[in-house]
Design a protein around this nucleic acid. Sequence first.
DNA 1: TCTCATGTTGATACACTGTATTTCCCCACT
DNA 2: AGTGGGGAAATACAGTGTATCAACATGAGA
Lengths: 230, 230
Amino acid sequence: MTVWDRPEPPARPVPLDRERIVAAAIALADEGGLEAVSLRKVAARLNAGPMRLYGYISTKEELFDLMVDEVQAEILPEEQPGDWREALRVLAHRTRQAALRHEWLADLLGGRPTLGPNGLAVTEAELAALDGLADIDTAIRAVETVSAYFTGAIRREIANLRAERATGLSKRDWQRAHGPHVTRMLATGRFPALAKAVHDGTDVDAETSFATGLDWVLDAVAAKLTPPPA
Amino acid sequence: MTVWDRPEPPARPVPLDRERIVAAAIALADEGGLEAVSLRKVAARLNAGPMRLYGYISTKEELFDLMVDEVQAEILPEEQPGDWREALRVLAHRTRQAALRHEWLADLLGGRPTLGPNGLAVTEAELAALDGLADIDTAIRAVETVSAYFTGAIRREIANLRAERATGLSKRDWQRAHGPHVTRMLATGRFPALAKAVHDGTDVDAETSFATGLDWVLDAVAAKLTPPPA
DNA sequence: TCTCATGTTGATACACTGTATTTCCCCACT
DNA sequence: AGTGGGGAAATACAGTGTATCAACATGAGA
């Protein structure tokens, strides 16, 4: 046995902390989706045994919460724009961009209350944008409505994106590519409005579709903020 | 050995079909949540070995899709109301009610495109409600916006409901009950708007909160349908 | 009626999972 | 030098989705 084939020393354990664990989990999820995140694999990335993680997190669900909160830090813009509308729009778009960077976020978004520091900061930013422009109850309703919209919209967008990817990237001919199933369904004549929609609808890219719906919702909010002059 | 203690004959296998499988899975999920649905347990409910299911479904994901589609049948109202607005509102509320009956639906809602017969029927109903009132592109945008809203709102509502249930049913004192964590966070003064919201906000029940936001979104849709007279 | 093919059913197997419990080893302190 | 004690690792367990394989009941053909 020479120095060269002498086995590696047992890899002195790297000091661990939540940040490193969460970062490893996020990396794993970015590469292979949420289902690729297992405590064993996260630990392996950190040259640690699986059980070591339990000194820092108490359950896998908690790890997911931490991952979400970590990504929510990317959502906060460096500086808040003045206009409430612009502020809310930017927050929505940045959430969407975060979800496009980390598709697994779509699986977690809205799945549980966001009580981490960054999640609270996002909510704070949303509420702050409306500060002084409406009573607190209206502001809450507005924030909840807007975020319900973009949460749902983002989830659908990612879901469609995955479906397209799975059926071999098809864009316009969604119905043909997804296989004969939907086409056959539409051909039954039981869904005339839907058939017309997929046939005659002009397909717009996901971003403008997101933006348009968002603008509608913001219009609705605007109407509640400044009551129409009597 | 008498007739009485003679062992049961090996339980002639009950004929199976997708409907029975899906029904068993839904029952399991209603009782113990989505995570209680395992192919083994579903099969056990039907006096079958786990592998038998693979003659009818090809993967667990597919079973989930079938469950969602089955529940979506509950969403379609027996008769469509005349007014487009009422029609969309009813569909949204019925979706919410379905999610309250089957909380696991919140975990699946929006997670993948709803391409089953009932899912298509729901979309058809939504589109049909707007038939003739707008060009097809506007109708699509409207339907997508409304359903993005209520998808997101339902998910959040269920998430909060579960969180409340977990921390020992707390209603108003959300911040105290959830534990010192959030309280401490709010006390830091880093979230003034949020602090004011939880402190001064009047808490309304989930249903009216859902309905209010929905009305706002429907207002927005209405504004796009009938362009303001020039 | 006997035989054989066929196709459905159940058993077994595998590679994982999250997590509880047990073992072990290294380091600081007496 | 001995001896705790504490943190890391190994092991263990009950479960998961699904592939593979063996058995068997049932139909057709002779």
